[in-house]
Structure formats: structure tokens, C-alpha cells
Design a protein around this nucleic acid. Structure first.
Lengths: 107, 107
DNA sequence: GCCTTCGGTAAGTACTAGCTTACCGTTCGT
DNA sequence: ACGAACGGTAAGCTAGTACTTACCGAAGGC
């Protein structure tokens, strides 16, 4: 298998093409061929990316005749969102001591 | 420059090591050397990752003597969270028509 | 039944990003 | 002023991943 196996939703979204797929599926569910028409890559490449996204739990697929319709998985997206919330809360509660010192370069 | 330039916070979080750094900085701000002690990589590698995270707006740095203390940037984290919210909302509002058809393999 | 459409898989290639060591500038301590 | 600590940068190597074309199975239309 030359395809990449994502352990994590973050790894899956680390690729710009996969983010484009996710953004596309956020509008409405689409078949593999539809995605390949929009994106600047071949259809097999789309399949490989969809496999990664599916393994990461970010999309779900459903057979519809000969076509296979992929849609965004809200649960997977929510999982990432919760993790970001954790970071965000820790960053705020732990240390506001330098609220007036934003990213100074040097003296 | 052999260092990777992230266009996006997603690209920055696409790397497991950078996620470890972010998780570490979420607890409390740390200097570069402190991070290098905890992480299984060399100090220059940490520096390179911090540059990527800084360019992505996920961390901020502050000079403290000879040391340089990095901390998580709540604004950067919030930006990613908002984007996930958008995806999440679209996924829910656009198509709940198949709420009872989760990831079936085939007939 | 046949052919077409659709999509996943295999094999192979090219590029890029992450790591290392080596080096240099800066700041503090004495 | 000298030395040490801290950290950013350069150059180079390696690994892995994103892409391609070719092939194959499955489901529908006529």
C-alpha cells in the first residue's frame, strides 16, 4: 500500500488537497468523480485522499448505484474542534501575565 | 532556507512533532531548550518547528535574557477553531437527510 | 449478455519536509 | 573583557508521501 495511513485527523488535514476535499464536502456530499472534476488532480489521487480522510473519521461514504457518495462526518470535525478548545482554554487560563507583550522581535 | 514555510495553521499542525510542541506550550510557556529536553529531537529541530508555528501565528515568542520563551497564541488557535465550526455547521445544516445511514460498506 | 461508467488498487517516480551536525551571533556572569 | 549558555541559520541526507498511469472488479443501461 503506497497510500498514507493517517493516525489522526490532524495528519489528514495536513495536506492542502485533503483540506480542499473537506471544504468541498462541507458544501454538499459528492461522488468521487465530481471531486476529481473540481480538483486539479486525477481521480485515483482523489480516491487515495478519501481513504485517508475516511480512516481519520472525517468523512463517511455511501454506495449509490455505481457511484460512491462521500460526505463530511460532523463527529470527526467536532473531535478536532474539542481538542482545539482544550488548547485554547489552557492557553488562556494558564498565563495571561504577558497580555501586553505580543511577539516582540527584540529590544 | 531548508525550512518549511507553512501557509496555514493546518499545515503547521500537520506534523506530529509540532502538535507535541503545541500541546507542551498549552500547559505553560517554555524556552527552546526546555522543549528540546522533553522532545526526542535536537534543539535546532525545535527551533525550525517553532519558526513554522510562529509564521502560522500559533505561537508568540519573547526574549528573556539569553533565552527565548515561546507561548501559545490563543488567537491563532481560535482561528482554526472557527474554521472547523464553519465546516461543522455546514455539514449539519446542509444535509441531515441520511442521519440513519452512517458509513455503510455496501448492500 | 454486452458494454459503459464508476471507483478502488498496484506499481513506480519525483519531490519535499524533517532531522542531523557544524557554525555564528547575542546576552549574561564573573 | 573573557567564557559560557542559549538559540537561530546553513548545508546536506534520508524517508516518506502525493502524484501519475495501468489494471481490475462491480453495478447499471440497452
Amino acid at each position: 500500500m503506497a497510500t498514507y495511513q493517517a493516525d489522526d485527523g490532524w495528519d489528514a488535514l495536513g495536506d492542502p488537497t485533503r483540506r480542499a476535499i473537506v471544504a468541498c464536502l462541507a458544501e454538499r456530499p459528492r461522488a468521487v468523480g465530481e471531486l476529481a472534476e473540481v480538483l486539479p488532480i486525477s481521480r485515483p489521487a482523489v480516491s487515495q485522499h478519501l481513504k485517508v480522510l475516511k480512516d481519520a473519521g472525517l468523512v463517511t461514504d455511501r454506495a449509490a448505484g455505481t457511484r460512491r457518495v462521500y460526505r463530511l462526518n460532523p463527529a470527526g470535525v467536532a473531535a478536532l474542534r474539542d481538542q482545539l478548545d482544550t488548547y485554547w482554554n489552557r492557553a488562556l487560563t494558564g498565563f495571561q501575565d504577558a497580555a501586553e507583550t505580543p511577539t516582540e522581535e527584540e529590544s
